[in-house]
């Protein structure tokens, strides 16, 4: 298997934690709320899923626990910023620290333990194509994540629910004036984002690298937040961005396998460096951000 085949085959799985968390954050931001606690929500989801799967609860229950845990912690965030109008940046950081602390606390006695991942399912015929065939051999969560991407894109773009969420993010006062429950919708969006971040953490800890280590999320929650900016709040572009980061995080492994003499620390920081560079390139186009950005992002809503 050469490097390109290796990256193509692994890209979607590596992209899934980014994708799930970024899709959740997309919905949160579309409703006008900035939740910077994704890293902590993912860490909490990861440890909960790991504990459930380790004790024989199975992967489905693991993902359920992670989704519920992520949603519960993000509701605390929602209460603080929507109920008490707190600064969203500070509250998001606090949730991030709290989530990482809780994950380390719960995961203490599971450090370095492993569980079994999930089998890969191959799509017939497509997976036999040379070079790109690996793209079509994925575990079930990857396939479900692709379905979720389509569902979220369609919901935001074409349904009334999506329109209400977007209207509330663009102009909460106008949305309130025509009778939409701004705070309730934002609560729901934040809980959805928390659940998706929990799923993302679960995928990282019980499917992608099925082992528990403190700090295993390693900045992926922050990259997911950056992905929403890269994707200029559009589902399709966020998906492409997640694939790019999936590929970048595999490039380190591919480079080492080919015997390239590069310090491993440089390869480990590649995703962070790419984030910085891409963020600079995309943000420099102010018109692009203004055109697709969410007008009321991060601002508290006062009737």
């Amino acid at each position: 298997m050469n490097a390109i085949e290796f990256i193509l085959a692994g890209m979607l799985a590596a992209a899934t934690p980014f994708l799930l968390a970024a899709l959740g954050e997309l919905v949160v931001e579309r409703a006008g709320v900035l939740n910077l606690g994704v890293e902590g929500l993912m860490a909490l989801g990861a440890v909960l899923a790991f504990i459930v799967v380790y004790h024989g609860g199975g992967h489905v229950m693991g993902f359920v626990a992670a989704g519920l845990g992520g949603a519960a912690l993000s509701l605390v965030f929602a209460l603080v910023v929507l109920g008490f109008r707190a600064n969203q940046v500070a509250a998001g950081l606090a949730i991030g620290i709290l989530g990482q602390g809780l994950s380390a606390l719960f995961g203490k006695s599971y450090e370095s333990l492993t569980v079994k991942g999930l089998p890969k399912l191959a799509l017939p015929w497509l997976s036999d194509i040379p070079v790109v065939g690996g793209l079509f051999v994925q575990d079930v969560v990857v396939w479900l994540s692709l379905a979720a991407t389509l569902a979220i894109w369609a919901t935001l773009a074409y349904t009334k629910t999506g329109l209400v969420v977007r209207a509330i993010g663009e102009n909460p006062k106008a949305a309130h004036a025509i009778g939409y429950p701004v705070v309730a919708v934002r609560f729901a969006a934040v809980a959805f984002g928390g659940m998706m971040a929990g799923f993302a953490g679960a995928y990282a800890a019980v499917v992608y690298t099925p082992l528990w280590a403190d700090g295993m999320i390693a900045g992926r929650g922050w990259i997911a937040i950056a992905l929403v900016v890269f994707g200029t709040w559009l589902t399709g572009r966020i998906f492409l961005g997640a694939c790019l980061f999936g590929a970048v995080s595999l490039m380190g492994l591919a480079a080492q396998a080919t015997g390239l003499d590069v310090p491993s620390q440089l390869l480990s920081s590649l995703p962070y460096l790419v984030t910085i560079v891409v963020l600079g390139i995309i943000s420099a186009d102010r018109r692009l951000l203004k055109l697709n950005g969410v007008a009321s992002l991060g601002e508290p809503f006062d009737r």
Partner: peptide, 27 residues
């Protein structure tokens, strides 16, 4: 520089640079 010249979000850039710094220290 990223914030003023490139309009990039300082929260994300400064956090990413922290992760890079930790790797630099390891190196």
């Amino acid at each position: 520089f990223w914030r003023v010249r490139l309009n990039a979000n300082e929260i994300l850039v400064s956090l990413m640079l922290s992760l890079v710094a930790a790797q630099l220290l390891n190196y």
